[in-house]
C-alpha cells in the first residue's frame, strides 16, 4: 500500500510552493474553510491528487502541519481545506485573510483505492471534522456517478451549528442518485428537521445492502469508530472493504521523520487510508 511520488516538487519533496488564499469563511465556531490556488499556474494544473490524500501547509514563522484535502480532483486547480483551530500552525492559518500566501507541498499519502471501488456501492459515514477528508471522495463519486453503484452518505454532528458543509449537504439531499442522511446528537435550535441521535441511529435507513459489493468509508472522532464499525460488521461488509483514514502528527509527510509511525506503519506513506483489517493489526491502536 505504498504511495508513489506525485509530489509537485520532484527534486526536493520538502520544498513548499507558494499558494494564494482565494476564499475563506468560517464553517463552525472553530473550523474554517480555505480555498487556495498555487501561484504558479503550471504547478496549479499539475497538482494531481486523489481523494483521501493530504498536503502539508506552512505559514512563515509558525511552522508546518498536515491537512487532508477536502476538494475533489474532478474539479481541478483549486484546493480546499477545512481547518480546525488546534495548535500553533492552525492558529496562524486562522489569522490569514483572502489573498494572503501560504506554503503548500504534496499531495501525500495513498488516498482511497478508487479503482477497486469502481462499480461498487459506497457508504460514507462521517462525524464532525471527519467530513473534511471524506467530502473529497463523496464529491468524486458524485462527479463520476456512472463509475459507482449506490452512494449513501451518513453524516453526524453534535449540534446543527457544528455540522460543517451543512448547506452543501442539505443541497445534496435533493439529488435522486444519492441517499443522504443527516443527524445531530442534540438540536439546540428547535429548527432541525432531520434525524436526532448519534450517527449509528441512521443505519436502519440503509436498506438492502449487498455487503460483498459494498465499500464503507468511515472518518470521525475516536469514539465514533467503535460503534460505527459494529454496525458495518453487522451488515456483513468485509473487513477489507471498510476504509478509514487516520490522522497523526507529521513533520515531513514523506515517510522520513518518523513521527506518524504506528508500530512500523508510516501513516504518511502507507496511509492515511487503511482498511479495518489493517487497523486490527496495529498494536499501538488497540
Amino acid at each position: 500500500m505504498n504511495g508513489e511520488n506525485k509530489c509537485i516538487n520532484q527534486t526536493n519533496p520538502y520544498l513548499p510552493e507558494a499558494a494564494r488564499i482565494v476564499r475563506t469563511y468560517p464553517l463552525t465556531e472553530d473550523v474554517k474553510y480555505f480555498q487556495v490556488r498555487l501561484v504558479d499556474m503550471e504547478k496549479a494544473i499539475s497538482f494531481k491528487y486523489s481523494p483521501g490524500q493530504f498536503a502539508m501547509i506552512s505559514v512563515l514563522g509558525a511552522g508546518e502541519a498536515p491537512f487532508s484535502i477536502s476538494s475533489t480532483p474532478s474539479r481541478p486547480s483549486l484546493l480546499e481545506f477545512c481547518i480546525r483551530k488546534a495548535g500553533t500552525v492552525t492558529n496562524a492559518i486562522f489569522k490569514l485573510k483572502e489573498n494572503d500566501h501560504i506554503g503548500i507541498r504534496g499531495p501525500y499519502g495513498n488516498g482511497f483505492p478508487i479503482e477497486s471501488m469502481h462499480g461498487k456501492d459506497i457508504i460514507i459515514v462521517m462525524g464532525g471534522l471527519g467530513a473534511a477528508p471524506l467530502r473529497s471522495v463523496l464529491l468524486y463519486c458524485l462527479d463520476n456517478r456512472d463509475l459507482f453503484g449506490r452512494v449513501a452518505l451518513l453524516h453526524g454532528a453534535k449540534r446543527p451549528a457544528e455540522m460543517i458543509f451543512r448547506e452543501e449537504f442539505f443541497a445534496l439531499k435533493e439529488r435522486k442518485d444519492l441517499e443522504c442522511y443527516l443527524t445531530v446528537d442534540a438540536d439546540d435550535t428547535g429548527k432541525w428537521k432531520e434525524n436526532i441521535g448519534v450517527v449509528t441511529t441512521l443505519f436502519p435507513q440503509l436498506k438492502d445492502i449487498n455487503p460483498s459489493k459494498t465499500f464503507a468509508i468511515v472518518c470521525g472522532p475516536p469514539v465514533m469508530y467503535k460503534f460505527v464499525l459494529k454496525e458495518l460488521i453487522k451488515l456483513n461488509i468485509p473487513k477489507n472493504q471498510i476504509l478509514m483514514t487516520l490522522e497523526r502528527r507529521m513533520k515531513c509527510g514523506v515517510g522520513k521523520c518518523g513521527h506518524c509511525a504506528i508500530d512500523y506503519i508510516y501513516t504518511c506513506i502507507d496511509g492515511p487510508v487503511f482498511t479495518y483489517w489493517d487497523v486490527i493489526h496495529m498494536k499501538e491502536l488497540i
Partner: peptide, 11 residues
C-alpha cells in the same frame, strides 16, 4: 521573542 512578536506561541 521573535515568535511572540510575530504572534506565534513559543516552540
Amino acid at each position: 521573542f521573535t515568535r511572540m512578536l510575530r504572534g506565534n506561541p513559543p516552540e
